[in-house]
Each structure stands twice: as C-alpha cells, then as structure tokens.
Amino acid sequence: MALSREQIAQRVAQELQDGYYVNLGIGIPTLVANYVPDDMEVMLQSENGLLGMGQFPTEEDIDADLINAGKQTVTMATGASIFDSAESFAMIRGGHVDLTVLGAFEVDVNGNIASYMIPGKLIKGMGGAMDLVAGADNIIVTMTHASKHGVSKLLSHCTLPLTGKGCIKKVLTDLAFIEIRGGKFHLLERAPGVSVEEIVTLTAGELVVTGDIPEMIL
C-alpha cells in the first residue's frame, strides 16, 4: 500500500533529532509537526520571521500579527524569537537550519528539483523555496512517486523550470525512501506492502537497488 500523507509525515519525523531547528514547507511537510516524539525538542522555523512556531491558536487567541509562512494564524512556542525577513533567510542561506522538508513536482538523478512553476498553468512564484534548497544541507523532499496517471516524478532530467540545481539528496515518496548519489537514485526503503518491481516501474530515472530492500517501519 502506498503511504498516506500522514504516513509520509510520520516517516519523515523519524529523521528528526533532539535539538533540531527545522523548516517545514506547505502541505505534507507541515504534518511532520504532528509526529515529533514526546521526548524530543524540535524548534520550527517559519521563514516569514519566526523561530519556535507553536500550534494553531484557539479562537480567542487569534492574532492577525502572528502568522506562519503559509499565512495561517499560529502561536509561538516557549522560547520563540521573532526577526525580519533578511535575518530569517540569513539563517536559511547560512546553513543554520538543521533539516528542511519541502514538496516538489519533480526531482532528478542529479539532485535537481522543480517545485514552483508549471509554465502556462501555475505561475504563483517560488516564495522561499529557492533559498531553502540552496541554503540547506539536509533536505528531505516529500512527494507522490508518480502522477495519478502513473507518470513518474523521479526523472533523469527535470522537465519543469528548476527551483534548485544539484541540491537534493533525499526523497520520500508514498512508495519509497530514496537517496540521490553519484547521478543515480538509490532505493533505501519501500513502503509496507509495496514491491521493488512496482517502485522500479514508476521510477523514470536510473534506480540502483542493492540487496534486500527493507520495508519502512511506521
């Protein structure tokens, strides 16, 4: 079975470490916050200028001056700090964020990522995504492995305009956990009940499968 959005988030959360500063993109990445283990402290960075993002406010605590990068009303966690956008991206570009999780339309074997534009269709802009992929060393891309029509999103070469070049090393899809190294995809784990053959079929770029591939433990 392919992983649900929640299960993808759950698997990403296993990559968290105590004391990590983490930036979570919009969509599936946001759900990762729900799976931070109880015995672990993680601080969420929101690129509009907040480190230490808390949960959504109650109706009576809503504050128009306090939002996240998705423009949703939020609260601040204990020990939070506020800063301007230049400083926020100094943290990101300067490599101070320990883990970045973001979505994508396509990734390829050279670590290129396309996530912000579909010419003629979707031209909303990159927001902070280009800075995030350029600045972070530890990035996990979360996405579905293929489109609804079975067209692979893990390619030899991205077809859409790039968000970043050669910056992606880890991809977690609904089918597999994949590492990008030496111009190839390497299969690390498969979703429970998903066969290696199925993953190979739906991976357009070169995929290296070495030995027995373990199932993810969720």
């Binding site: 956008s85 280009m130 800075d131 970043g164």
Partner: peptide, 27 residues
C-alpha cells in the same frame, strides 16, 4: 526568491549595490 528579495532591500538600504547568492543558480 523571498530571501533574495529581502536581501535586495537590506543591501539597497545599506549602500551595497549587489551581492552574490547561491539562491536561484541554475534556475
């Protein structure tokens, strides 16, 4: 890009005419 936009303003106000950034390279 958002960080580049912020830095363009910051640099403009600080008398820096231009800056190098990895953001957007190859895009």
């Amino acid at each position: 890009p958002q960080g580049t936009l912020a830095e363009k303003m910051r640099a403009g106000g600080a008398g820096i005419p231009a800056f190098f950034t990895a953001t957007g390279y190859g895009t």
